[in-house]
Write a protein that binds this DNA or RNA. Structure first.
Lengths: 189, 189
DNA sequence: CTTGCCATTTGGCAATTGTCAAACGCAGGC
DNA sequence: GCCTGCGTTTGACAATTGCCAAATGGCAAG
């Protein structure tokens, strides 16, 4: 909970009453490995702050193959933000890769916080654009690098994460096949 | 100018006085082919709405090669949004690929509109997250497609644009070399 | 018209990555 | 302990893409 508040304070100032209000609206939630926090076609009713575990934002093609857009892990927010904000159907899935513990804000709580805390929307606007821009740059950078460079960069940028996610999901994040990832890993060690 | 207002109205309601206020703050600006709308390291002082022409958001590696993250063309906003919002140094360049005509809002005008139009920030928060999410998905999708598929998708998704930008810049957007793009083009026709 | 420059195309070859099938290895259920 | 299933690794081969150098083509300046 302290981590959540510290995260928010990076993006705007909050006084003690506001912090208390936020804490009163945050609800703990756990989700099991393999289940979805949010599903394509459904309306996102909550936004989560990950306190333990890893999720992935992903989609499936017409023959059921899953592709990982990115991973979300401890001390980050996770949500289909456009679905949550405008209550439109989600475009993708958010899947728990491990058992996860979250602090969530329901849409109603979030709206109340918007109304009662002037900087609330500004904080989330900043978080949203920062995160999305970083994800966009990450994908865009990978596009012009070879697979081994992408993997090494992942290891350096997300220390330890490669050991916590299935390699098949990491491969689809990197845009390569599991076979290629396996060969690259052998090559490096 | 009507196009700019129509674009904004997609993201929130504005009454006639608000529309007039917005119009009074929008300034026309032209920039020449080859010059920068915004430069890495400098603070973005304006956000632009493109009425004519094409720009690219790009960066340069340590040996001076330029890479295109994405193109911005008519009836879209262009800015280094994190730099503009928080007045921090820009991370990348925004370069005019053709002579361009824009309607711009200075930081001061934008702030005044924020203060006088309640939905202004909400409109731009939606635009920002929609655009960034789409760009992120586009890069992420390309990562798992072969080069020819990426090129064909570009042709279909941005009709006519391939004929208006240098092929070398399109190649770097697609994450391939100009030679490869040339071969793919020959292959298709 | 000629020249020179720069973007694009082309060719040959090398490196990377994909595809497919088989083998391997580990964890959970019986 | 043994089976079974799934994720990962490995091998052989094919396809894609990169790299480098040369040729081509268009455009602008002289």
């Amino acid at each position: 909970m302290e981590a959540l508040i510290r995260y928010l304070l990076q993006y705007g100032n909050l006084n003690p009453e506001q912090i208390e209000l936020i804490q009163s609206k945050a609800e703990p939630k756990t989700i099991e490995k393999g289940t979805y926090f949010s599903e394509a076609g459904k309306i996102a009713g909550q936004i989560g702050y990950v306190t333990e575990g890893i999720l992935r934002v992903c989609y499936y093609n017409n023959i059921g193959e899953g592709f990982t857009r990115y991973f979300v892990y401890e001390n980050r927010f996770v949500a289909d933000i456009n679905s949550f904000r405008d209550q439109l159907p989600s475009s993708e899935y958010i899947e728990a890769i491990t058992d996860c513990s979250l602090m969530i804000f329901s849409k109603e709580s979030f709206t109340e916080l918007s109304n009662r805390i002037p900087v609330w929307n500004s904080i989330f606007a900043k978080i949203t654009s920062n995160v999305l821009e970083n994800k966009m740059k990450a994908s865009s950078n990978m596009l012009v690098q070879d697979a081994q460079t992408r993997y090494i960069h992942f290891l350096e940028h997300y220390p330890g994460l490669a050991n916590r996610v299935p390699l098949s999901m990491l491969a689809s994040y990197l845009g390569i096949t599991p076979s290629s990832l396996s060969r690259i890993r052998k090559n490096i060690t």
